[in-house]
Each structure stands twice: as C-alpha cells, then as structure tokens.
Design a protein around this nucleic acid. Structure first.
Length: 259
DNA sequence: GATGACCTGTGA
DNA sequence: TCACAGGTCATC
C-alpha cells in the first residue's frame, strides 16, 4: 500500500480540504469494502448531515472524527488513493493506472456544497471501518524512540523485517520502506530481531527516522535510494542486489554491506 | 512464524 | 498466459 508517507499525504489532504463541510450523502457502492459489520446503510445514518472535524492518522489508518462523536477509519490497502474534489493523494500507482474509473470509487461522501471526497482503490484491498479499534496498532513509526524500538524488536527470533512490518507493534512501515531502512542501516533483513546489539539498534532507529524524513520530502515510499531490482548494483558498494522472500514479502538487499 | 488467501490490474 | 504488486488476515 501506500505506506505511512502516502497515508500521511492523504491525511493532510483530508485535513486541508474535507473538514467542516456538511455531508449530504454517503457513496458506498461496494459493501465488501466496509469491514467489521459496517453496512452502507449504517454509514449513511452515521454520516448524513454530519461534518468531519479532524483527520488523524495512526500507522496506515486514517481516522476521521465526526462532529457526532463517531470515527470513520480509512485504509488504502495496496492501491488506494484519497480524492477530495479535484485533488488527490495516496498510492502513486506505479504499477496501476492513474485513471479515475468510476467503478474504482469504493467509498466516499458528497458534500452539500457540491464537492466530494472518496477513496479510489482498483484492487479493493482497502477498507472502511466505523469506530475502529485504534489500539490494535502499535506505536506510530513517526513517534518511534529507542525504548519503543526495543519493545518492537524484543528478544524475537523473527526476522527484523517481519517485526518492523508488524503493525500491531510498529504502525506505518511497509515493504518498501522497511527494505530501504535495512539497506541504509546495513542490516540483513532476515537477521533475528532479538540478535541486534545496542549499536545496531541505535543505527536502525536513526535509519528509520532518516528514511522517513528523506523519502517524505522526496514524495513517498518509492523514492528510496536502493534499486528494487535483482542484480542491480548496490549504490553503496556496487555489489549486485539479491531478491528473496523475508517475512513473507519480496525483499531486496545487498549481500555485501547488509549483515 | 511461515504460508496461502483475499481482489484486481499490469506488464512480460 | 502468468507472475507480480506498496497490505492484512486466517490457518497450520
């Protein structure tokens, strides 16, 4: 998906453009997109006549507070994008087309002023929830500190990549960002999380912060320095990058400097 | 903790 | 036609 950086862009767009506008009606043509028992009818009852008063984010979830005290949770899945009127943010759709097929509009609202906000998601892996349980998510990656990272890694034998992507422990990092972080930190993503010594944990924390800052400025998860292509030379040392599966995800890394 | 499933679009 | 895609969930 859109990882934390794209989701933050989408959140900011909603904050800037979708708050304090009265909802005229809900557009929820795809009941499958609504999770945890939410139905199009219930969404309508909750939102019709209401306004969003805040656009928050935790990890990859966007949380829209309504003036009625309810919360609409939006998840962009792997290809979701938020559109407000004629502006949009979210997944850059490197692999998908950026067409705005009407059929890809999975959920949204029309405002009484004539505008609209909706989630466009070709692959339908996104989600909308009412009053989501925000505590099923771990600490937000942008708030991470040394102590919290210690709890994320724990004494686990799981690959460090798997722990960094475990949303219940650390919310926000996805496949691309995690690979970039490990590459910058010089860490083999398959290393058992608990095997990192104090120095390596400090390096990892710095890499997470620096990666989020740098790629955030550049415009997203896909703007990393490490090529995502096997046999491409590592920009640090020229060694051909390898491709494998770690933590169930396609993983690129440099066999030379990532240890 | 690893694996497969979910759903759909794209490009080789 | 097939493999693959930035996410998450259930299941072994």
């Amino acid at each position: 998906m859109p990882e934390i950086l794209e989701v933050e862009d989408a959140r900011a767009l909603l904050e800037k453009r979708a708050l304090r506008r009265e909802v005229e009606r809900v557009h929820a043509p795809d009941a499958w997109f609504l999770k945890r028992g939410l139905t199009p009818q219930a969404a309508g009852r909750v939102l019709d006549g209401e306004r969003f008063i805040a656009a928050r984010r935790r990890g990859k979830w966007i949380l829209l507070d309504t003036d009625g005290g309810r919360v609409i949770g939006l998840h962009l899945g792997m290809s979701g994008r938020v559109v407000v009127d004629d502006d949009e943010a979210g997944d850059p759709l490197i692999y998908a087309s950026n067409r705005d097929e009407i059929g890809w509009r999975r959920f949204g609202v029309h405002f009484t002023d004539g505008g609209a906000m909706y989630v466009r998601d070709p692959r339908r892996l996104g989600a909308v929830e009412l009053d989501p349980d925000e505590d099923r998510l771990g600490i937000d990656a942008l708030e991470l500190d040394a102590e919290a990272l210690g709890k994320v890694l724990d004494e686990s034998r799981a690959p460090v990549k798997a722990r960094l992507m475990d949303q219940a422990r650390l919310a926000g990092l996805g496949n691309l960002l995690t690979d970039e972080v490990c590459w910058r930190a010089g860490l083999d993503p398959s290393r058992p999380a608990g095997s990192l010594d104090a120095d390596e944990r400090r390096t990892l924390l710095k890499a997470i912060r620096q990666t989020l800052r740098t790629l955030g400025r550049r415009g997203g998860s896909h703007t990393g320095d490490m090529p995502r292509s096997a046999d491409e030379p590592c920009p640090k040392d020229g060694t051909p990058l390898t491709r494998r599966t770690v933590g169930g995800r396609t993983t690129y890394s440099c066999p030379e400097h990532q240890r």
